[in-house]
Amino acid sequence: MVVEPIAEQQAAPKLTRKDFASSADPRWCPGCGDYSILAQTQKMLPNLGVPREKLVFVSGIGCASRFPYYMNTYGFHSIHGRAPTLATGLKVARPDLQLWVITGDGDALSIGGNHFLHALRRNIDINIILFNNRIYGLTKGQYSPTSELGKRTKSSPMGSIDAPINPISVALAAEATFVARSFDTDPPHLIETLERAARHRGGSFVEVYQNCNIFNDGAYRAFTDKPVRLQRMLYLKDGEPMRYGVEQEMAVRLNGLAAECVDLREEPDAEPLVHDASRTDPSVAHLLARMSYPEMPVPVGVFRDVEKPTYDALLEEQIEMASAQQGKGDIRALLRGDTTWQVE
């Protein structure tokens, strides 16, 4: 969504993080990654210049879905998996609002999988933020659709036999026009990513790796911990070669139809892939989505950012077109229909 501050708001004092905090005290467990995502969202929103009353946070069910209660904006805490449907209806009714869907891995990819797909393929102008902790937290620790195969949880004491789903791949397969990933322990990156999602016109999807310190502590620590982050994660930057490592000594390049890592100290002439999120063809984005630790660095940033007509705009267009072609609806003529007859 392209957000431009409206004239009267420019005169108003710029809002701050505190303006977006509601009076309700967050009730997530101490140390939960959700606190960081809430804080970064509240820090980011003043940058957009959108008045508070124009923002609506819609959520489903799960720890993440308590998010709207903590935002001093409009909010709707709905039912499990269905937040994208409510957001779709609200955006259709009110294109003037900026909509955020807050969801989790169970909410978006299990019970709400269908709505997640269809909201993205319609390219309705909403922002879907998925807090992925790879576990069911609110129900106290069952495996989720992103839990790794073999994971031992309360509902999988011998290890999960469900193959996990990859949220970025699913979003790309649904033809999402904006697909990104960030994580809870890199606030500047999270703020930048959320802001780009907000500014994208169309359906935006951001996966946020989020730590559940109670039921799945350290799920991402192997590559998100500060000392190893630079070696094990790939920060995607538009127009720049895909390089990583403390000295940017490593690169990702194409080998046939696959991505591979290359050590530039050994192969100085290697040609790294240059990141271009605006590429219409999603093939490279799909390759990036499949990269995972430890074989490859884990990409974060914007995988895909392309322009397509949005569902809400197309609907408004049809209404204008119909009114132009058929004339504005005349209720009396409609009630009479094609044929009437008079009884004296």
Binding site: F76, R82, L86, G89, V92, A93, H115, S323
Partner: peptide
């Protein structure tokens, strides 16, 4: 459409109800 009527053919029955409720909230 020329009466300003917005119809959404939803992906399923649940979504249709959710869309209508979201619209009502708006």
């Amino acid at each position: 459409r020329n009466f300003g009527v917005k119809t959404v053919q939803a992906e399923d029955e649940i979504a249709a109800a959710g869309v209508a409720l979201g619209a009502a909230f708006g």
